[in-house]
């Protein structure tokens, strides 16, 4: 079955994607855990939580991209991003770092096939 999966750089874009019938939307936090961490783009924690609630209410899923590689001196930022995405209700994570996947996903409620490398 074909699915329509759309990117969203802002809450408005996420809503537009849902309105247009997206089956899933992928997005990320407005920090260095996101490979597209550009000025004025992406989601705060609250915006992601609200966006996921909106998407789920309309039958769409939200995939959260945490697709940069942790810095050795600041791995907590990436661990926290995974924790926050999961607690916000993310349906899947898109991870770049296999080590992060190994460390975090063993304790995650989502199945292994809900995470992928980017």
């Amino acid at each position: 079955m074909m699915e329509l999966i759309c990117p969203a750089g802002t809450p408005a874009a996420l809503k537009s994607a849902i309105d247009a019938g997206a089956d899933a939307i992928y997005c990320g936090f407005n920090d260095e855990t996101n490979a597209r961490n550009f000025p004025g783009l992406n989601f705060s924690r609250d915006e992601l939580r609200n966006g996921i609630a909106l998407a789920h209410g309309r039958g769409a899923r939200v995939l959260v991209a945490i697709n940069t590689f942790p810095r050795a001196s600041a791995v907590d930022i990436w661990h926290r991003a995974v924790d926050d995405a999961v607690s916000a209700g993310a349906d899947a994570l898109i991870l770049a770092d296999i080590g992060l996947m190994e460390v975090k996903l063993s304790a995650m409620p989502m199945a292994a096939d809900s995470a992928s490398t980017a």
């Binding site: 750089g9 802002t10 809450p11 408005a12 874009a13 550009f38 000025p39 004025g40 783009l41």
Partner: peptide, 15 residues
């Protein structure tokens, strides 16, 4: 240009 990019993205989101 980074400030302008932030402004553009902020305005886009406000619709």
């Amino acid at each position: 240009v980074e400030a302008v990019l932030a402004l553009r993205n902020a305005i886009d989101d406000a619709q």
